[in-house]
Write a protein that binds this DNA or RNA. Structure first.
Ligand SMILES: [Mn+2]
Ligand SMILES: [Mn+2]
Ligand SMILES: [Mn+2]
Ligand SMILES: [Mn+2]
Lengths: 227, 227
DNA sequence: AAAATTTGTTAGAAGACTCTAACATATTAG
DNA sequence: CTAATATGTTAGAGTCTTCTAACAAATTTT
């Protein structure tokens, strides 16, 4: 028997739209059609018609030629998908021995599994982690999320000691790059010097006395002050 | 970005057809269109067109008005889906504390995740189990499966001591029924008496001195001789 | 303010998967 | 062997998700 999704549930495609909209909404409320198409890698007309569809389902607010936003119902639905995604990533790293650079693609598929019990069980087995392997917060069972207030390393000045708490983005390439520099979450870092010309930073951490990182990289290293 | 399936891979729908065909092929080679439609809960014309599609992909052998069968390529593809399904079920039971009656629906969705690494990792973490929680054998990475030669309990006579090794089917209702009788895989059973009228059996096992089971149930209890 | 550019919409179509109604073939019963 | 029944196929359509081409509105530049 083909296991079909309940009719009142969002399809896998709809879920991906909601999740993309949710991610793009961080720090602002409204999102353009074009931003969504770029994020999802589909054409503008495709997004346009899907947005109309999500509007009839009460998941997004939208008027012709205006930017769109999630309704409260849509926001919660999206947060619950993000919850599944991040719990999965954490489970794969903590309980199954995957590297933080390997888990996103798998979680992208697992996040659509319709069994809250599976994810609540992961949560329980990990003793209710607050963040995923990349430092992003995990929404609770009600879709509530605690926005973390970490700052990019690039904002700090020479001599400052900080701890790596999260990443601004977590592409496989970036994660592999950080692996190659032995830099992981929780690592304490001291800013040894800053190149005025291009903003690159020389850092000292663990057994690495002076590693240079470009400004772009330092903007994606989210840290908290230490000491 | 919408994570799209590679073009050369079977869709989730196609995978479900292959798996159903595979299950229906146990003990015979050829399967009717109608058997497949019944198993998948879709109409005959739907199966008819999907079968044509699977034929062009070299996954099934089929001629108009004739029964169909899997090609070697189709057989292997199906076995690998079954592998994912059964490894998932075993992982959910062994490593995540689910009951054997809870795992099928979840595995039905997880079996379509395209990451051999995820399933090979489950396999490794469980130390390469040979069977799933219902006693069905798990195909290896090459799609090879060792057909088990257990016999239905109904075939045996009074006084025989056997061990429950697998189930003929594993519907949630049946599994809950077995739970209610405290009957699980590995349990040693002795046949105390058989009712000639309807073939029902009185069994003794563990701390249950005389439990009666209908013939239908005993046909679905696959056992091996003991002592 | 007009022109150029960017952004968004509509129209029309296609592929994947599904259905029902109607028709064709094969099998089974008399 | 014919008639009845069961099984399989074709035709035509609908939903979902996607596309391209053409057009419209909004924004930015000059
Ligand atoms: Mn991720
Ligand atoms: Mn996804
Ligand atoms: Mn199963
Ligand atoms: Mn399935």
């Amino acid at each position: 028997m083909l296991s079909q999704r309940r009719k009142d549930m969002a399809s896998q495609t709809e879920e991906n739209y909601l999740k993309a909209l949710y991610s793009l909404s961080v720090g602002k409320i409204e999102v353009n059609i074009s931003e969504l198409s770029a994020a999802l890698n589909v054409s503008n007309p495709t997004v346009n018609s899907m947005v109309k569809n999500l509007k009839t389902k009460g998941l997004v607010k939208y008027e012709k030629y205006k930017p769109l936003s999630l309704t409260e119902k849509g926001r919660k639905a999206a947060a619950l998908i993000v919850r599944k995604h991040r719990l999965t990533e954490m489970f794969l790293v903590e309980k199954m021995g995957f590297g933080w650079e390997e888990v996103h693609e798998i979680a992208e598929q697992l996040e659509h599994v319709s069994s809250s019990k599976l994810f609540d069980r992961m949560d329980e087995l990990m003793d209710f982690p607050l963040v995923d392997p990349h430092g992003s917060p995990i929404p609770d069972r009600n879709g509530n999320i605690s926005e973390s207030a970490y700052e990019p390393l690039s904002k700090f000045s020479v001599g400052r000691k900080v701890k790596l708490a999260a990443l601004g983005h977590s592409s496989t390439e970036f994660l592999k790059f950080l692996n190659s520099r032995e830099l992981s979450l929780g690592t304490e870092i001291e800013i040894k010097s800053i190149e005025p010309y291009d903003g690159s930073m020389v850092l000292s951490y663990q057994n690495r006395a002076s590693e240079t990182f470009t400004q772009a990289v330092c903007e994606s290293l989210l840290v908290e002050r230490v000491g």
